[in-house]
């Protein structure tokens, strides 16, 4: 009887995680493995016949000069530029906001609510709203910039082949700052106040306190945050897709997920689209595994 109870106790954790494991197998592992398989085939769409073509899709993308391969390298570098700009901007603004919210000031509650708004708006609605704000003729941005004398002529901010990436980066930053703020704020709240008092006694100024107490204390939470947001924004699709005109591959906001979408669903080259996604995943894994390893090492130390 005692043995059975022990056995049951040992099994209990497995039973508890079973639903999650099943969900992971169905929604993560299966798509990942099938995506990997498709990337070595010439499959056109789900349900179609798939012939094994080995590394042809990968070679065509990396070496090729026609079709989507024309834009592969460009999209790859633009994905890096996009991710660094968005995540970097979110981190800097998120940190400033978190530091502000960690202090007491008049209207703090209202400010806390306002800062969370971008996170609550559905991304499609948000992208369409920003598209309207950026509209060359009727957007509020052009209207006020002209009214205040910053520009003489209306500017087309997005949607042209030579439009810069940063107007969309601003949207990405705006979207992600609330999450970054929340995470960093929770980290700030956990720092022992006595550390600051001791530093003050030792004559440390605010900047020194920030560099020697705040940042090291936040290190783990910053790394986790940056890893998470890097993954999310590397794979970001909706903002770039909605705010760019149809068939705008090669534009500066065109990243790997956009290219994969065109290949897989627009042109019915699921095999090649899967290859783009796998390459994208591998790059992300290399960055992440290295970061995780470093983090684990520092935690052990």
């Amino acid at each position: 009887m005692a043995n059975r109870s022990l056995f049951k106790k040992k099994l209990l954790p497995y039973w508890l995680i079973l639903p999650t494991v099943i969900a992971l197998i169905i929604f993560t592992l299966y798509p990942l493995i099938s995506g990997l398989f498709y990337s070595f085939t010439d499959i056109k769409f789900i349900g179609a016949k798939a012939n094994w073509v080995g590394l042809d899709n990968y070679i065509a993308l990396i070496k090729g000069t026609v079709g989507s391969a024309r834009f592969f390298a460009q999209s790859f570098w633009q994905t890096i530029e996009w991710t660094i700009s968005v995540v970097g901007g979110q981190f800097i603004l998120g940190l400033i906001t978190a530091l502000l919210l960690n202090r007491d000031f008049f209207g703090k509650s209202a400010f806390s609510i306002l800062i969370m708004i971008p996170w609550t708006i559905p991304s499609v609605v948000m992208s369409l709203t920003w598209q309207w704000l950026y509209d060359p003729f009727y957007g509020l941005i052009n209207f006020y910039l002209k009214k205040w004398g910053f520009i003489e002529k209306y500017v087309t901010w997005v949607g042209q082949p030579n439009s810069e990436i940063w107007p969309q980066v601003i949207v990405g930053i705006w979207r992600g700052v609330p999450f970054m703020t929340l995470m960093l704020l929770s980290g700030l709240k956990a720092i022992d106040k006595e550390l600051y008092e001791a530093a003050k006694v030792d004559g440390a100024n605010t900047l020194q306190q920030f560099i020697h107490i705040t940042l090291p204390s936040l290190k783990t939470i910053i790394v986790i945050n940056l890893m998470l947001t890097t993954m999310w924004w590397w794979n970001s699709f909706d903002i770039q897709k909605i705010m760019s005109p149809v068939n705008s591959l090669g534009y500066k906001a065109s990243t790997l997920p956009i290219l994969a979408w065109y290949e897989s669903f627009q042109w019915k080259h699921l095999g090649k689209g899967a290859a783009i996604s796998i390459i994208s995943l591998l790059v992300l894994l290399v960055i992440m595994i290295d970061r995780v390893r470093q983090e684990m090492r520092s935690v052990k130390e």
Binding site: V66, S68, R70, F71, N247, L249, Q266, W267
Partner: peptide
């Protein structure tokens, strides 16, 4: 579609 998006239109 691919021809138009990747070559003709740009």
């Amino acid at each position: 579609d691919e021809f138009v998006t990747t070559l003709y239109a740009p």
